[in-house]
Design a protein around this nucleic acid. Structure first.
Lengths: 333, 333
DNA sequence: GTGAAAGCGCTAACAG
DNA sequence: CTGTTAGCGCTTTCAC
């Protein structure tokens, strides 16, 4: 399968210069006379020469490729980040190797090693939980890693996030200020996630400000799926809850639809606020109120941070916290 | 930035064999004695040797990487295909370089050439339109290309699709059988797309079966966005339409929400059927009836087809047509 | 069953 | 400003 036919050597011969000169022209090195440069470019054009990035990668030890580990491209939260990542990557002439991890540790470690063997210049990791095994591998890696929309417990790996605790606190404030006493907190797993821990803390502190005692019974750890959202509503209604703070949009959509199916009016009889402000929040009726993290920007800034690390530029802060908004829509009063 | 420290040479030395033998072990070549194999594997483990895929790619001219051109990862239709592609790719030990094209020809040609320079072993293209310029580049490429969920006018490039014409015909049948006379057809651009052409034909033939004269005025070419869906509803209502066949789910969601906002009851006063059966169709209230192409499978089969071409296996059919269903939900009677 | 040696196409000193 | 010369780490004949 001869993909490449014309090499730098062919160009050099045709143009009557050395490979080194061609290389210089291709890499936009200044030290080339205008006339020879023109000549070389002409030959490149004529021969339709395309530099072989693999050879280049081997010789220079830089592949201009970064690995992106994503739980599932089909999840709007992550794909929104991915879009920001890719745009900035393209701007800096990097390509992206996208790998779905399904959030399974085994997969993730495999994927990480696979990416490293491909000699990516950097890695962006997305996902809600970081197990010890994966964490160790990341720390061990000489290839820089940036966490997008997630963080490690010890805050050793550069990351880009919002202030989850305060955001969740504000979101909960919005609800308790309407007088609710039974407010459920719907979350994914609380294992290995400093991320959901922070949210839980925000929820808790909000309640305590209005003298509602925090009770673990009000915390529901469920799978982050539409169906799980539908199901949890049955329980919530049976137990008399009148509001919920939700960490995932798909879950929240499931809940809001299920509430409608139960004939429960939102927001009059039940209030819901969710956390990611993905497209979905605007597609439901009523529209979902939500914490609004700058999804695209989290991805974009992560990639930008990674380029800085890869280029050994000075970094002022390894842990970037982006601002968020609270979008009040129709699922809260 | 020394990413790689231990090389095949180190392993060879430690194990007291030649590089060639190590290479054979790594590549699972049969011609190695069980005992030397064991010895080599032990050293690999001990040294934590990881083959350098870039060097391997240069030497073997195979990168086990495929390029995937996607208009926007954030679009559920395309990301669902992408998920199928990645899963099958992983199964065959390929990685994916994902590139967002924004469906802009200029971008696409650039991206394609970029992918080729990275020496990908194959390319999967997603997108609704294929301009002549891009088409030429694809045909010229010695690297195999497969079209996922789209097709070229001349059917020269291998592709995986459903029968858009018949599917749209059936979808329209469903609506006209309920007696509607004014049925709009909401589509994206009709330029450079054998794809939407086929759908239009299906729509047209369905109408003609019940003696409704096809009229171009009923065809609305709009951007495929939620907002455009909302806006087009104003026009449709003003002109007295009572039903619409829509080619894109986001548009359909915009329409259904806008209809609700106008106080128009769906499906009683207005019926809508859409085309992609993405997650979105189940999240709206009422749920959207839809043509249901096997999204994940279109991606998966495309990738499988590509592996066959890359491995020079025998191909029985370059143009694969997968079966679809019609999902009747609540937006049609 | 194993080793030696010749590249793959390019970059990166180092001379000049 | 330009050319020469080593590799980068691996696969792949071709011998033995």
């Amino acid at each position: 399968m001869e993909k490449q036919t014309v090499t730098i050597y062919d160009v050099a011969r045709e143009a009557g210069v050395s490979m080194a000169t061609v290389s210089r022209v291709v890499n936009e090195n200044q030290n080339v006379k205008e006339t020879t440069k023109k000549k070389v470019l002409e030959v490149i054009e004529r021969l339709d020469y395309r530099p072989n990035a693999v050879a280049r990668g081997l010789a220079s030890k830089r592949t201009t490729t970064v690995g992106v580990i994503i739980p599932d491209v089909t999840n709007l939260y992550f794909s929104s980040l991915a879009r920001g990542i890719d745009d900035i990557a393209a701007m800096y002439k990097y390509n992206i190797i996208l790998a779905n991890s399904d959030q399974s540790t085994h997969q993730e470690v495999k994927v990480l090693n696979n990416l490293l063997s491909k000699q990516v210049d950097g890695i962006i990791y997305m996902g809600t939980t970081i197990t010890d095994e994966l964490y160790k591998e990341m720390l061990r890696s000489k290839t820089p890693v940036v966490l997008a929309g997630t963080m490690d417990q010890l805050h050793e790996i550069p990351s880009v996030n919002i202030d989850y605790k305060t955001a969740t606190e504000e979101a909960t404030d919005l609800i308790v200020s309407n007088g609710h006493k039974q407010v459920a907190f719907i979350t994914g797993t609380l294992k290995n996630t400093s991320f959901n821990d922070l949210r839980l803390k925000g929820y808790r502190e909000s309640l305590e400000k209005v003298d509602i005692t925090f009770n673990e019974k009000n915390v529901y750890e469920i799978p982050l799926t539409y169906q799980a959202g539908e199901h949890v509503v049955d329980k919530l209604l049976a137990k008399g809850y009148t509001a919920a703070v939700v960490v995932d949009d798909e879950v929240a959509v499931g809940m809001i639809n299920s509430l409608a199916d139960h004939g429960v009016k939102v927001p009059e009889e039940f209030e819901v606020i969710t956390s990611n402000n993905s497209k979905l929040t605007k597609l439901t009726r009523p529209c979902l109120s939500s914490i609004a993290p700058p999804l695209y920007d989290i991805g974009a800034v992560s990639m930008r941070l990674l380029t800085k690390i890869m280029h050994k530029e000075e970094i002022f802060d390894n842990e970037i916290t982006l601002p968020y908004r609270i979008e009040k829509r129709q699922s809260t009063k």
